[in-house]
Amino acid sequence: MSIADRPPGAIETIGAWLLGLLWILPLAYAVWTAFHPSAYATRFDLLAPLTLENFVAAWQAAPFGRYLFNTTVIVTMVLAGQFLVCTLAAYAFARYRFPGQSLLFALVLMQLMVMPDILIVENYRTMFALGLVDTLGAVALPYMASAFGIFLLRQTFMTVPKELEEAAIVEGCSSLGVLWRVYVPLARPVFVAYGLVSVSYHWNNFLWPLIVTNSVETRPLTVGLAVFSSTDQGIDWSIISAATLMTAAPLLVAFLIFQRAFVQSFMRAGIR
């Protein structure tokens, strides 16, 4: 009898726990360091005293409240912009025929293959020319016309039965009314899935905001954390870990709350 054929039992459960714990070890380590005095930062002791002082120290040492506000504004701007721009474009690509349509769609697909980070130098020059360097808008603008969003929504819109659209027109809906009342409600799971992917991507984005922002008023959490951990704190790992947790916490908490919805939407949307 091979190992794989043995009836499942305690060994499998213990193995799963061990592997699982190994998997979250780095995160567990950050939690450990953040909630214990710095003397225990690299030493494991079950009886070590718990403390919240690292969080207080990190919060006082850098404007994390402001960084959190900036990140929230950026993520909201990007999401609102993407929903508007991508929905309109996807609707046009799915249901209208206009000159140059194939060429324009090919351009959208081309954008899928190029990471925006490659264009950083030139995008910086554009933002400079527009006078937008070191503004929240500059962080959000390059991501507004997401090729992934346009592609995903176009594919979804194309599966909507034409009869529904025709019925809505007979009822007196305008073209945009059809989009708003028929297409958008039917694509809701895709909007949710895309929204979650977009929020987690832009919450975590680092390189572009690092280049285009240079003041407390515009820096998002990720850049704030990098600045904080590289200059201010030397190697006080406990305070840095506390700051690190504060950066990731909102997203992790949201993930825990919306876990089921997220995974289901992700699967249903068939992101590929």
């Binding site: 699982g20 990098a226 870990s241």
Partner: peptide, 15 residues
């Protein structure tokens, strides 16, 4: 297994 999905690269590097 899904936990690291929501952690920024910079936090992964930091930790």
């Amino acid at each position: 297994y899904r936990w690291p999905l929501f952690i920024p690269f910079i936090v992964v590097g930091q930790v």
